[in-house]
Design a binder for these strands. Structure first.
Lengths: 334, 334
DNA sequence: TTGTATGCGTTATCAT
DNA sequence: ATGATAACGCATACAA
C-alpha cells in the first residue's frame, strides 16, 4: 500500500479528518484555508507520501501539462537539438514533452501527429513531410500547434522557420567566390519542404549566375545517403558539392576519405545545419548555421502563448536566417 | 465543436441511440455486440470524428500507456540513441515516451525521476548519478523501472549495463600494444557510476602492467571538457589519452588540431561509446563500441515484461560487452 | 473558512 | 446482447 503512489485524496481527507475539498485546496495552495488545518493536512499528506494523481487532475482540469513533439527522425542531431531546446523551455513552465518520430512509417505522419496530440495539450510539428492538403487538416485537428521548419501560406499557425532560400544562396555564393563553376547539389527527401526551399534558392541564384552550373541530384537526408553518393559526385565533373545537410556531408566526406579524394583540394564540400560535430569533421565542415535548440525553445514560447491566451494569440511567423560558417572543407578551385 | 476532439462517448451514444456502455464496447472491439448495432455506432463515431479520451481512459484503466525516460543530458548522442531505441520499441507496443533530462539541476535527479514516473506507467532510468542510498529509494518509488548504465547490487530491478571494466581494459591494452607506457585518463563526472567502473578497470589493468603509468585526471563528459583538457594532457608527458567518452575525445581532438599537435603521431587519443560521428572525426576516432540504441530497445523489452506480468518477471541483469574499434586516432608510440 | 455535491470521459460490474 | 450504474481521483460551484 505504500510502495505505490496509491494513496488518494480521500484517504488523506479521512486521516486528517477533513473533506476532500479541503485537501484539494491545501494541495493547490488555495489561500482560503485555516493555517492550522492546512498544516495538519500537509502533515498527513507528507506522512502518507501523498501526491495528487496527474491523470485524475488532467481529467478534471482538462489539461495534461504535456506537449507532443513530432519529428521525422530522432536520430538526426538537428531534431535532437530542437527536442532539447523545447524540452528545456517547457520544463521551466512545468510541462513535459512526449516525443514521437515518423521514421518507421513516414506515410502515416498525419495520423501520428493527431494521435500524439490526443495525449497532450498542444503539439510541435517539426519538419512535417506530408502533402499540403493533409497538413492543413492536421493543423486544424491538432491546435494549439506550432510549425517548425515548414511554412504554410495562409495559415494562422505560429511558424518557426529557417530561411533556406537565403541560406543555400549564401553557400552557392561562397563556392562561386572560391572559383567553383560546376556544383552538385545532393538533394534531400523529395517530401521535405526545406529541400524544396533549397532547390528554389539554387534555381534563383543560378539564374543570376549563368556562368555557373548547379546540378541537383537525388540523395537523401542521412549519413548513408551521402556515403552512397560518391560515384554520382565524382562522375559529375563538379568541383564542389552542396549537401542537403551536415549528415549527408559527413557521409560523403567519409567515403571521399576512403577513396583518397582530397578535400577541399580536389573537391569542396559544404553542409547545412551546423550540427555540433560539423567543426570536428575531417576536414572540418563548411556549413550554414541554424539555431537548432532555439527553434525548439521558441516553439514552446509560442505554444505557451496559445495555451494561455486561447483567444488568437500573436500568430506570427518567425524566420531564422542561417549564417555561413566557413571551415576547411571548402577551398579554391584547383 | 468539431475543431476539437470534444465529442464524448455520451454524444455518440445519444446520436446512435444506444448506451455509453455499448459505444465503449464497440470502440474496444468487444465481441459481444450486435453487428448491426456496432456498424451504426461506428458510423456515428466516424461522422462525429469521435475518438475516446486518452485521459479518461487512463483514469478508468489505471494506465497511461506512457513510459518515462530520464537521462542526464539530452545533448549527448549516447543518450539520444538510447531514447531512439526505446522510443521505437515502445511505439510498437502502443506506448509513448516522455522524456526528461536532469542537466539543469543534476542534484534534483531523484525528484525528477519520481515526478516523471507519476505521469507514466513505468520508468527508464538512464545513467543516474545520484548517490546509492537515494537510488534505492527512487527505484522503490518508481517501479516498474529499469536501470540503464548503472548497477545496484542486491536490487531486483532489471538492469542493462555495459561492461566498462572490460571495455576500458581493452583500450589500455590496445594502447600498450602500440607501445604506449604513459597514459592519461580524462575522467568523467565523479558522480558517474560508469566513470567509477572505468577507473576501477584501469586500476586493475595497471596492477597487471607495472611498466605502464596511467594517470587519471578530472575532466568531464562534454565536448568542452575535452577541449579544455589540452594543457593537462600536453603537460603530463603522456603519449596517449583515454577519454571518458567520445564527446570528450572530440573536444580534445579539436583543440589538438588547433594547437597543431599531430594525432596520432605525437599523441594517441581513444574515446568510448562509438557515437555515430566517431568514424568521421579528424582523425577518425578509436573507441569502444557500445550498442546504444539497443540499450534503449532492451530497456523497453524488460519494462514490458514487468508491465505484463506484475508478478516479479525475470528481473535479470544484462551485460553488454563493448567492442574495440580501432581507427586512426591511435598509433604506435613515436 | 469548510463541506456537499457534481462533473470530467471512460471502463467495468451487474442486472436484465 | 444491452443498459443502468458505479467506480477512477481530482477540482470546483455552491451552500452553509
Amino acid at each position: 500500500m505504500s510502495s505505490d503512489g496509491v494513496t488518494t485524496i480521500a484517504e488523506v481527507a479521512r486521516q486528517a479528518g477533513v473533506s476532500r475539498a479541503t485537501v484539494s485546496r491545501v494541495m493547490n495552495d488555495r489561500a482560503t484555508v485555516d493555517p492550522q488545518l492546512a498544516a495538519r493536512v500537509r502533515e498527513v499528506a507528507a506522512r502518507l507520501n501523498y501526491s495528487p494523481s496527474r491523470v485524475a487532475r488532467s481529467l478534471s482540469l482538462g489539461r495534461t501539462q504535456t506537449v507532443g513533439l513530432l519529428v521525422p527522425d530522432l536520430g538526426n542531431p538537428m531534431f535532437q537539438q530542437v527536442l532539447r531546446g523545447a524540452n528545456q523551455a517547457a520544463r521551466r513552465s512545468g510541462y513535459r514533452i512526449l516525443v514521437a518520430d515518423s521514421i518507421e512509417e513516414p506515410q502515416r505522419e498525419a495520423e501520428l501527429a493527431i494521435e500524439a496530440r490526443r495525449r497532450c495539450d498542444a503539439l510541435i510539428l517539426c519538419s512535417p513531410r506530408m502533402p499540403e492538403a493533409e497538413l492543413v487538416q492536421v493543423l486544424n485537428a491538432t491546435r494549439p500547434v506550432v510549425l517548425v521548419n515548414r511554412e504554410l501560406t495562409g495559415s494562422d499557425v505560429p511558424t518557426l522557420t529557417v530561411d533556406y532560400v537565403h541560406g543555400i544562396r549564401a553557400v552557392a555564393q561562397h563556392l562561386l567566390e572560391l572559383g567553383h563553376h560546376r556544383i552538385v547539389y545532393l538533394a534531400g527527401p523529395t517530401e521535405s519542404a526545406s529541400n524544396a526551399a533549397r532547390l528554389a534558392g539554387l534555381r534563383e541564384w543560378q539564374a543570376e549566375h549563368p556562368e555557373v552550373t548547379i546540378e541537383p541530384v537525388p540523395c537523401g537526408s542521412m549519413i548513408e545517403d551521402g556515403y552512397r553518393a560518391i560515384d554520382t559526385v565524382l562522375g559529375s565533373g563538379a568541383t564542389a558539392v552542396i549537401a542537403f545537410n551536415d549528415l549527408v556531408a559527413f557521409g560523403l566526406l567519409g567515403k571521399l576519405d576512403e577513396a583518397g579524394v582530397d578535400v577541399p583540394g580536389a573537391l569542396s564540400v559544404a553542409g547545412f545545419d551546423d550540427i555540433d560535430f560539423a567543426r570536428y569533421a575531417r576536414p572540418s565542415l563548411t556549413t550554414m548555421s541554424v539555431p537548432q535548440a532555439e527553434l525548439g525553445q521558441q516553439a514552446w514560447d509560442h505554444l505557451r502563448e496559445l495555451l494561455e491566451e486561447p483567444g488568437q494569440a500573436t500568430p506570427r511567423t518567425q524566420y531564422f536566417r542561417p549564417q555561413l560558417i566557413v571551415r576547411a572543407s571548402t577551398g579554391s578551385r584547383s
